[in-house]
């Protein structure tokens, strides 16, 4: 039972990273400039690296011979446990950058705390991810400042993105029973304690951008229970197509 909780807790985290990776990957070839095309896919590659490590560790704990690919490509929508935030559509550049800032501003302190994990693999993943998340905060943050404090058009779009995405922020700080169990034995950090750190990272950026985080009257959650928005199904259609159409395909 304990192992099942640890497995589920790692899957939640791995799903966050693989779904956001897929979203960033959707920009490949479509970004406004070549420089950002590479920046977005560089960030996507950071995320897939982390997701792979987490899926592999989860599979190892599960001990049923499933591989990281089985976990990423052969589970259904309701079995995905990612945050709703990461499955939100890319929208415009402001949506993508604000979503990235919200996520990275949570994960950077999370991985900092995970450096103390009792699990050696988690410590290893954290050591790499903490630097990657620092860069995602910097890159997304610089853009958020320029979009919020830029032209009338960019400010309007940045405000619209804040309005659309702020309702998914609360879920970052929720702890599922599995995550609570993993935190209880010191394997993963307690998510609930990271709101101050998240505010500490986002507040100065939003202030410079002239953006305000609206109060979420009705925060949206459900990802950890497999209750997703319609968008996740569309992501999985594309992401899992190859393994579903040609099971076991390799190249």
């Amino acid at each position: 039972m304990r192992d099942e909780s640890l497995f589920n807790a790692l899957i939640e985290l791995a799903d966050d990273h693989s779904i956001l990776c897929h979203r960033l990957g959707e920009w490949c070839g479509h970004a406004p400039i070549l420089e950002e095309d590479l920046a977005l896919t560089n960030m996507a590659l950071d995320l897939i690296g982390t997701a792979r490590g987490l899926y592999a560790r989860a599979a190892e704990i599960e001990g049923r011979g499933r591989s990281e690919d089985d976990l990423a490509y052969l589970r259904n929508e309701r079995q995905f446990r990612n945050l709703i935030l990461v499955e939100r559509p890319n929208g415009d550049f402001a949506h993508t950058m604000i979503r990235q800032l919200f996520f990275a501003a949570f994960m950077e302190p999370y991985w900092q705390a995970a450096l103390e994990s009792r699990d050696e693999t988690v410590r290893g993943i954290a050591g790499k991810a903490v630097k990657e998340m620092s860069y995602h905060i910097r890159h997304a943050g610089e853009w958020v400042i320029r979009l919020g404090d830029g032209t009338e058009e960019s400010a309007t779009r940045a405000k619209a993105a804040m309005e659309a995405l702020h309702i998914y922020v609360d879920e970052l700080f929720h702890s599922s029973p599995a995550a609570a169990a993993a935190a209880g034995i010191g394997m993963l950090p307690d998510r609930r304690g990271l709101r101050a750190a998240w505010n500490g990272i986002t507040a100065p950026i939003l202030a410079r951008a002239g953006l305000e985080l609206p109060q979420a009257a009705n925060p949206q959650t459900g990802g950890r229970a497999g209750l997703h928005t319609e968008d996740l199904g569309h992501i999985l259609c594309e992401m899992q197509y190859l393994q579903r159409a040609y099971p076991g395909a390799t190249w």
């Binding site: 590479l38 920046a39 610089e142």
Partner: peptide
């Protein structure tokens, strides 16, 4: 070379394009 709006973004762009 890279295109960028200012020096800070130019450094990020250079990092992302030329130090992969």
């Amino acid at each position: 070379s890279v295109h960028a709006a200012d020096a800070t973004l130019a450094l990020d762009a250079a990092r992302d394009v030329y130090t992969r």
